[in-house]
């Protein structure tokens, strides 16, 4: 089942004389349970693509459907509700609220809906157990490590059982060990709970955890790779190769 469908997505920044086309008529589909990576050099439009798909930014033209909801047809109020109920977010800089404890941060997306308290407690317990952060629930973000922050952020993204999770460079600020731990967690959750994940990254190791990787260049999809039955190492090499072709010199990060 296709969960996300984008048609002729175009995004133009700037006004009148000084415009820049960041996304040029992109078509893409994401099926339920996929773990899709988006790679590409700086300025290729990765984050912009993720933002418009996640309804945080608006497209200039084209249509995006998630779970058969057309994002362009929804008003701001409706869109907020949609984000809360159907989408999850993980950001590079965690985006946790400093004034809230880990548990309070995770509870946020559930706080407006009519989820009963006992159900909320159960959901929080389940997701924090899975991510291994149930022993820091009463700590404030400034008291925990970067890896723990990002897992908190992931827990917050997943606690509402979203249709699709968007992750923007989730490992960007982490050391390699924490990064691998987080990605394994995401991979596990993707496989076990059939959660669809879409992740922007410039890190080939991170991308190798995905089931499919899209390469973006100058606002267009340049190519895509499927993991299929390959193991992670093989897939990683394949990604590296594509990347060097893409950037021409093999040095792009």
């Amino acid at each position: 089942m296709v969960i996300l469908r984008g048609r002729k997505i175009k995004k133009v920044f700037g006004k009148k004389t000084n415009t820049q086309e960041v996304l040029k008529d992109i078509d893409l589909e994401v099926r339920e349970g996929e773990f899709v990576g988006i790679m590409g050099p700086s300025g290729s439009g990765k984050t912009t693509l993720l933002n418009v798909l996640a309804s945080i930014d608006k497209v200039t033209s084209g249509t995006i459907e998630i779970n058969n909801f057309n994002l362009q047809k929804m008003k701001e109020q409706r869109l907020s509700q949609f984000r809360r109920e159907q989408l999850g977010f993980i950001f590079q800089d965690y985006n946790l609220l400093d004034t809230l404890t880990v548990k309070e941060n995770i509870y946020l997306p559930l706080s407006v809906g009519k989820t009963p308290k006992t159900v909320s407690e159960k959901k929080i317990k389940e997701i924090t157990d899975l991510l291994g952060i149930n022993d820091i629930l009463n700590k404030y973000p400034n008291e925990i490590s970067g890896g723990q922050k990002q897992r908190t952020s992931a827990a917050r993204a997943l606690v509402g059982s979203p249709s699709i999770v968007f992750a923007d460079e989730p490992t960007g600020a982490l050391d390699s060990k924490s990064a691998t731990a987080l990605l394994s967690n995401l991979e596990k959750i993707n496989k076990e709970k059939k959660v669809t994940i879409m992740m922007v990254t410039h890190d080939s190791v991170a991308a190798s955890f995905c089931s499919r990787v899209l390469f973006l260049k100058d606002g267009q999809i340049y190519s895509e790779l499927y993991k299929g039955e390959k193991d992670r190492k093989q897939f990683y090499h394949e990604i590296m190769n594509t990347q060097s072709v893409l950037s021409g010199d093999g040095y792009d990060a």
Partner: peptide, 17 residues
């Protein structure tokens, strides 16, 4: 007990800190 509504988040905890 950690289950604060968004209204609490924006009033209680901000004022407190």
């Amino acid at each position: 007990k950690g289950l604060m509504s968004v209204q609490d988040v924006l009033s209680l905890s901000t004022i407190m800190h």
